[in-house]
Write a protein that binds this DNA or RNA. Structure first.
Lengths: 216, 216
DNA sequence: TAAAAAAAGGGGGTATTCCCCCCCTTAATT
DNA sequence: AATTAAGGGGGGGAATACCCCCTTTTTTTA
């Protein structure tokens, strides 16, 4: 029952890559690569001129003039029905997060197998999104940087204190909440400073967030 | 070419739910629900007795005795080939993150359509994972809580100050880095306190992290 | 072009944080 | 019986953070 094909735009400033990608994607059944752009600017002016609108855009992340995130944000804002699949060489956390926040419906590394790309395009078209395990893990682990004292076991009361520290409370206020004297609270602070190898409250806050002791 | 069915275990302490789920899943082609457990403990002892190992486990998150995260962690550690699909009523950020960190290959809300479950089981079996858009958004947006002054535009120098604040630096040190007098730095602090409606440095740090001005 | 806002620097005071000591009790170890 | 760990409480002081009020210069913008 051969439906109308999924129309695809490709945006990538490596012409060799984009043209070979066009060939590859066109070879998949039911896909039609209508346009190929070398830059974010190009697809923007193309769409501004009220030309045809694609179902899916394969968007390179790192482009010289108008970058991937910016382009993605523009597409999201002006053509929210378009599903953007981000394509990237590396898996830079900031960029992954940036692209997804900008509205990308998926994030693929360029070293994937053709079959995965085909699957991803179909998924993003049908279900509206396609997230690989790697990307999700990147999001999850985007907190395991820094040299965190990871092998530290925090006790219940310490966790309580830590959670309260991650808020605009003074130690006096924390003491009230925890039903302790301010001085005892300071003891917790001091022992945590040592345990977690930090020097200020800010350090505690960063630790708590990185370790997902508190979720923002 | 009818392959051997995907074997599935269900773990859920709501018997009514788990048994109806068993019926539903069994009705999907090529799925076989071999065992149903009422608790994490039960599947653990079952597997410890070297009984059959399933392909996929549908795991309830909130269970009375041995909880979902704990169970998932045990499965991940002892039977890494088993794909765990977490099932949950709500989409609590901490729990989503906890489950995925514990090794779950997917996270589904219990109010999904049967078709989605079928699709998810197939995906998790074939590709090893299945993440819904909601879950990914939960991870992404796990920062858009709180009443952030979102419509604030920060100037370059303010951003610089803000980024430096998210570190264990005193204002004196920040002043050195920014080549400003400590007093000027304090002016930035004050104006940001107003703009961002926070009362302490901690507030600034939380804002910067939530708004991904700094990525941890 | 005059007014407003932004950028930089500052005084002086109070509150809080941070740091190094100290003490007591209770419960587990040895 | 003595030691060690864990939880709770404290003093005092120096450093830092926080707050309000101020001046000057430059840049925007109305």
């Amino acid at each position: 029952m051969s439906e109308s094909p999924i129309t695809i735009f490709i945006v990538d400033d490596h012409k060799l890559f984009s043209s070979s990608l066009k060939g590859l994607v066109s070879s998949f059944s039911n896909f039609k690569v209508s346009e190929v752009f070398n830059d974010g600017d190009e697809i923007v002016s193309f769409l501004e001129d009220k030309n045809s609108v694609p179902d899916v855009v394969l968007l390179d992340v790192k482009m010289k003039r108008m970058g991937g995130i910016e382009t993605c944000g523009w597409l999201k804002k002006n053509f929210p029905t378009i599903k953007v699949l981000a394509l990237s060489m590396e898996e830079d956390e900031e960029i992954v997060i940036g692209m997804l926040r900008a509205g990308a419906k998926g994030y693929l590394l360029k070293d994937i197998n053709p079959g995965v790309l085909e699957h991803a395009i179909n998924e993003v078209y049908k279900n509206g999104f396609y997230y690989t395990e790697e990307v999700t893990n990147t999001l999850l682990n985007s907190s395991e940087n820094g040299s965190l004292k990871n092998n530290v076991v925090l006790k219940e009361r310490e966790l309580e204190f830590l959670k309260l520290t991650v808020s605009e409370r003074t130690y006096k206020e924390i003491a009230n909440v925890m039903c302790l004297s301010p001085k005892t609270v300071e003891n917790y602070r001091e022992s945590l400073f040592e345990k977690l190898e930090v020097k200020t409250r800010i350090g505690l806050v960063l630790y708590a967030i990185k370790e997902k002791i508190v979720i923002l």
